[in-house]
Simulated scan of single mutants.
Amino acid sequence: MVKVIGAGLPRTGTTSTKAALEKLGFDPCYHMYEVFTHPDHVDRWLPAVEGKTLDWDRVLAGYRATLDWPASYFWREQAEAYPEAKVLLTVRDPERWFVSFRMLTSRNGDLEELDLTKLPEQAAAVVGAMRGMLPVLDMMGRSLFGSDWRIGVDEVDEQTAIEAFNRHVSTVKESLPAERLLVFDVREGWGPLCEFLGVEPPADEPFPRLNDTQAMQENFERLMSGGELASPFFGK
């Protein structure tokens, strides 16, 4: 049963927060990484593109927390499906978020150029899953940024993107009672997160600080050379 619902956009510290939640016992935590390590999960999300209601007990079967797209896009639906769950809105400086998010989404355009038959087995599976998720990502991007979205934020100017970011944050904050919501910046560390969730912080252990951009690049290089996918892969 889901206990923590992530409502933050990608690149708001979601990978670091995923590691933190799992360390606190809210594991496993659903993250975009799960789709790429379980390509069969793509089919769980595709009905949303047609406007169909998702079966959350099926989509999130076995998970105790959610973060990052695609899950965080549906924060409102999950909040209704799991009324006892608390909601975590990860945030960061909007200008730094825009730079990081643009770097992430600009990679999507390269996916169609890859020949899966020439890739190592796991790389082909991951790229295939990424391609499969493009309709879902497109739907979410258009909803957030408007019609200028084209499978990437490169087509959206910085002002529009930052306005969308701030609008999203405001909508989440206005939609939930204060006692159910934590607006969280990973720089705050264990304190506010543990207090919100009613758990003790790990003794003598620093809050996870994961460099997602570096990890993503290293994973792509590892996959393309026939190596294994390592976590973290996507997020922050």
Score class of each variant (00 low, 15 high):
Y82I: 08
L144R: 04
P70F: 05
R102H: 10
M139I: 07
E77T: 01
E121S: 10
V59L: 07
R76D: 09
V99A: 10
F98A: 12
D185W: 07
F165K: 10
D110E: 02
E84Y: 06
R92D: 09
R167M: 15
R180I: 00
W190E: 03
S175E: 06
E112S: 14
G128N: 04
R131Y: 04
V127M: 02
I162R: 07
N166V: 01
E163L: 13
L89P: 03
R92N: 09
D157E: 05
E179A: 01
R64T: 12
V136T: 06
A178C: 03
V183Q: 07
D93R: 09
P177S: 09
E95R: 14
A85M: 05
T117P: 09
R131M: 02
L193K: 04
M130Q: 05
A124M: 05
V156N: 01
L181Q: 06
V156A: 00
E188V: 15
N108Y: 14
G141Y: 06
T117S: 14
A65H: 01
T171M: 15
E77G: 04
R76W: 11
Y63F: 12
W97I: 08
G62S: 08
R64K: 14
R131F: 05
Q122W: 15
V127Q: 00
F98N: 08
E80Q: 13
L137C: 08
R58Q: 12
G62V: 08
V127K: 02
Q159G: 06
V99D: 01
R64F: 10
P120F: 10
A124Q: 05
D110Y: 13
K86C: 02
A85Y: 03
G191I: 14
F98K: 09
S72R: 05
L67D: 00
L114T: 01
D138A: 09
